[in-house]
């Protein structure tokens, strides 16, 4: 989880120089999405065993953002948070059902 949030200068340059940057998400929006995802994932981790996909998706998000692709970065950060939510959903359902499969 200890990931470097600072973006390389080259990524910033790439955004500034990109003609489409006016339409696309910017670094602030990405960082906001990332922080939201991180807090959701941490919260889920206190309650259930996470999937191994959430942190991997956050790393992919960071890679996309480092290339200046903040839209992709936001999409992946949101997906990472969603995977944490789904892990919680399974655990909640299983809390009711697991004992059905214990041989009696």
């Amino acid at each position: 989880m200890k990931r470097n949030l600072y973006l390389p200068f080259s990524a910033l340059l790439a955004v500034l120089m990109s003609p489409a940057s006016a339409m696309a998400a910017d670094a602030d929006e990405y960082v906001a999405a990332l922080e939201k995802a991180q807090s959701q994932i941490c919260e889920a981790a206190t309650r259930v065993q996470l999937w191994n996909t959430s942190e991997a998706l956050l790393e992919e998000a960071a890679e996309a953002a480092a290339k200046g692709n903040f839209d992709e970065g936001i999409k992946l950060a949101n997906e990472a948070a969603l995977h944490a939510e789904l892990a919680v959903a399974t655990a909640v359902r299983e809390k009711k059902n697991w004992h059905l499969y214990v041989p009696k």
Binding site: N52, T53, W98, H99, P103
Partner: peptide, 22 residues
């Protein structure tokens, strides 16, 4: 420990039980 064994987990949603009993 028993609850852990019979509880589904992970993105693929398998419990230990699904593979090693069923």
């Amino acid at each position: 420990g028993k609850e852990y064994y019979y509880t589904r987990r992970g993105q693929l949603e398998f419990a230990c039980e699904n593979c090693h009993m069923q």
